[in-house]
């Protein structure tokens, strides 16, 4: 059995497209995350909240910490008056990128399903994308 058969012969086009996108996105996430954290810890970029201040309060609940320090949450990093060029904000954006990775892969799968006229799975994938978009929109929120 050839390598081609072993690696790709058992996966259809949509799986291969999903895998290719995932491969690309996963490697990008690792690089962006490592670079962002390096900028954060080394202080090469200024910080919007000092690390010591966060460490002194990380025993508090998320609600209480937010009320006290106003850290980046949801998409707020893009609307803050101080801008995004802060070590902690850049690192937070790398986490957003990780959270979006699956959504990007699902969109690539949806496009292949549509191209192959597989209506049922196009619909399921589209609904899944909508669920993730609703989650990422912040419409749903919890309070304590």
């Amino acid at each position: 059995m050839t390598d081609m058969k072993r690696e790709g012969g058992y996966a259809d086009r949509v799986q291969l497209a999903y895998a290719k996108t995932l491969d690309y996105v996963a490697h990008s996430v690792i690089i962006v995350m490592a670079a962002g954290y390096f900028l954060y810890l080394t202080g090469l970029l200024p910080l919007s909240v000092p690390i010591e201040t966060i460490a002194g309060n990380w025993h508090l609940s998320a609600s209480r910490l937010q009320a006290k320090l106003h850290l980046a949450s949801g998409w707020s990093c893009f609307t803050r008056p101080e801008g995004i060029f802060h070590g902690d904000i850049v690192s937070y954006i790398s986490v957003i990128f990780l959270s979006l990775a699956t959504l990007i892969c699902l969109v690539s799968a949806f496009l292949v399903f549509i191209g192959e006229k597989k209506r049922l799975y196009s619909a399921i994938t589209l609904l899944q994308v909508i669920v993730l978009l609703v989650a990422a929109s912040g419409i749903l929120s919890a309070g304590r």
């Binding site: 998320a62 949801g74 957003i96 959270s99 993730l132 990422a136 929120s141």
Partner: peptide
């Protein structure tokens, strides 16, 4: 995303 909007994700 629910955790992120709550501020429960700290890099």
């Amino acid at each position: 995303w629910v955790y992120m909007f709550k501020g429960a994700v700290i890099p």
